[in-house]
Structures are given as structure tokens and as C-alpha cells.
Nucleic acid binder design. Structure first.
Lengths: 192, 192
DNA sequence: CAGGGTTGGCTAACGCCATTAGCTTTTAGC
DNA sequence: GCTAAAAGCTAATGGCGTTAGCCAACCCTG
């Protein structure tokens, strides 16, 4: 019998896909093993524990999201950049609700934790959106938290099916992006 | 031997408290039973299953949050109301992260589901914040979703310890409330 | 205040899950 | 080809949710 040829990355990727399909809570070692054509205990040759697996998925998410944001923000600034970042985050979360769910509630061990680094890179991309708005440097962290809270909240609620009247969700999204764009424009240094 | 004198409400309340203390994931039937001075299977005399328990906690949250919002919004309008609603939601979620966590991912069965009704009442309170801003009725749903996404996102991230530099979180919160207030003020019917 | 039905507790047991131990087989390098 | 590491396996443990079935405490009627 030939081997399955697994490695930590393959296991992580399969787990992420399974999470998106059946929900993070249903990603059991047995189900994951079955999908990989292997028995559950064999997975422990590649990952330490389920907590370790979640951590690896979260790292994957941070990398994927960071890549997607950098890609989307290339050559854009101001309102274009804002809309692109918002759409990128929304699309990613709605498309990958299971893997995204791993990113809430994880203990970052230290500043050299790969997860902390990848997360910081995501935040850096969001911060890049703010450049063209020329926000007062002292307010930058607040504006960044606004974007993060809003995008995270909107996409999370949408992914959970929390909005009624599905057809209007796109309109709400556009309206909110416009709302933030106008608000940030008012806060340019020159306007105070 | 005397009886413990439990009922569904007492079990739900104890579970909500335990969730806040140890995290929703650690609310096991055994731990909950122990806190109530009872053995795990006895809990099934009061609740149907763990899913049923989560549902009951979520309903409790919707009622508590609705009550708190109505209380806080009494006699306030405009910016005051916005700030009060934001603070109420934030305080509640940060103080009760475990029980609040039950409100994500729950299937509402129909429009007469008590959970749907209680949830709608929470949204009604948020909608009351918008009255004084005299938003164009067609935009009301979008503004409501803005508030909901933002408050939910901010408090969720804060409760999960997602913001660095803890001391500045209060400042960010105030800044964001101010940002939304100004943005909504611009959208009064008269201003378009 | 007697007794019978209902209610709320208990123990025992099942199946599923994560995880560990220890064995066997494949595979890569010399 | 030989050997050692890596990667799979089966078996077993302990914890969890849940069900079945038993017994004691309570309420309520007479």
C-alpha cells in the first residue's frame, strides 16, 4: 500500500476546506482523516493537536487575506482602495466562513509569533487604505479600528445569515463604503 | 434528600454565567451540573439538549440586551442616543462574552420564533437611535446595518482581546462614535 | 393526613471524539 | 540492498453528550 503523502500544509488546507463546507465545529479528526484517505491517529504525524490545527488554519487565513488585500490594493488609493479592501474582506469571509472562524479567540504568544506577524501584515494593508485620506497621525489607529470592526462585523453577520432581505445586502454594503469614504474625507488634516 | 429546585430558567442563567467565566466552549454538561449541585443527566429534565440550551441563552441575551438598550435610550436622542446605545452594547458584550457568543450562528425557524421576536426588538432599539438623524427612509436599513456591524465587530474584537494597546481602546471607541455621529448628521434629509 | 401520580433526581450504559502507545510498513539515502 | 527515519495502522483511554430505566421527593386530592 502506497502512502498518502501528507504534510502539515496539506492537512491544514484540507481542514480549512472542510471547515468552509461543514462549519468549523464539525471539523473532527475523523472527518478530516476520511477526506484525506487516512485514519484519524495518522494526522498526529503532521499536527500536534486540534488546537495546533486551528492555529495553522488561522495562519493560512492571515496569509491568504493579506495576499488578497495587497493584490487588490495595488495601484488604488482613496475611495477606490477603500472599496477594494472592503470587497476583498467581504468576499473572502463569506466564501470561507469556516476557516475565518478560526481567527477569533487565539492566543498570540509573542511578537515573533508567525501569526502575529501575518496578522500585522493584514492590518498594514488596511492601514494603507488610509494613506490617501491623510488622516491626522494621532487618529490613524482609531480609523484603522473603525475599518477593522466594521468589515469584520458586517462580513461575520452576513456569513452567519444574520441579515434579513438578502437582496439588499449588496446595497447596504455599498452605502456603508460610501458612508465611510465621506467621513474619512472630512477628516483630512486640512479640514480641521 | 431535598431537591435542587431547578427549572429551565435557572439552568439557562447558570449556563450563561458559566459561559462568561470560562468561555462558551467550556460550558460542558458536567461542569454546568456541578455548579448546580446536580449530576449531568439531570439537566435533561429541564432542557432538551445542548443546542436547546444555547438557544435559550441566546434568547436571554436578546432580552437582556433589549432591556438594557431601551433603558439606556429613554429620553435620549441624536448623538446622546447613539453614544448610549454604543456604550450599552459594548459594556454588555465585554462583560458577557460567553453568553453573547451564543448569538452567532443560530437558525431562526420562523417569524414567530421567540428568538426572532427578541432579536427584532433589539434592532428596533438600534433603529430608534436613527430617528433624530432624520435619515432618508430608504437608507434606514443601511444605516441600521452600519450600526449593527460596527458595534458587533468592535465589541467582539475587544472581548476577544484583539486590539493591542489596551489603554487606547476607550479613545478609539469615542472617536468612532463621533465619526458615525458626524456622518449620520450629514445624511439628514435636509442636507441632500 | 393518607396515598397515588408526577416530577426531578440518580446510576449505568452507548457512541463519538481527541489523543496516546506501540507496532508495521514504506521510503529515502548511502 | 540495508538501515533508519517517517508515516501509516490498530488498540486503548478518558471525556463528552445523550438515553434508558430506576427510585425518591413532592403535590394534590380525598
Amino acid at each position: 500500500m502506497p502512502r498518502a503523502g501528507l504534510d502539515p500544509a496539506a492537512v491544514t488546507l484540507a481542514a480549512a476546506g472542510l471547515a468552509d463546507e461543514v462549519g468549523l465545529a464539525n471539523v473532527t479528526m475523523g472527518a478530516l482523516a476520511e477526506r484525506l484517505g487516512v485514519r484519524a491517529p495518522s494526522l498526529y504525524k503532521h499536527i500536534d493537536s486540534q488546537a495546533d490545527l486551528n492555529r495553522r488554519i488561522a495562519l493560512l487565513v492571515a496569509e491568504e487575506l493579506g495576499d488578497a488585500l495587497r493584490e487588490a490594493l495595488q495601484g488604488r488609493s482613496g475611495r477606490d482602495a477603500l472599496a477594494a479592501a472592503a470587497r476583498t474582506m467581504r468576499d473572502y469571509i463569506v466564501k470561507h466562513p469556516g476557516r475565518y472562524a478560526t481567527t477569533i479567540r487565539l492566543g498570540v504568544t509573542g511578537p515573533d509569533d508567525p501569526l502575529a506577524i501575518a496578522g500585522a501584515r493584514v492590518l498594514d494593508s488596511l492601514a494603507a487604505v488610509l494613506i490617501a485620506y491623510r488622516i491626522d497621525p494621532a487618529d490613524k489607529i482609531h480609523a484603522l479600528r473603525l475599518l477593522r470592526s466594521l468589515f469584520h462585523g458586517f462580513a461575520t453577520i452576513e456569513a452567519a445569515g444574520g441579515f434579513e432581505m438578502n437582496t439588499e445586502v449588496d446595497d447596504s454594503f455599498d452605502w456603508i463604503v460610501d458612508f465611510v469614504d465621506r467621513g474619512l474625507s472630512l477628516r483630512r488634516e486640512s479640514s480641521e
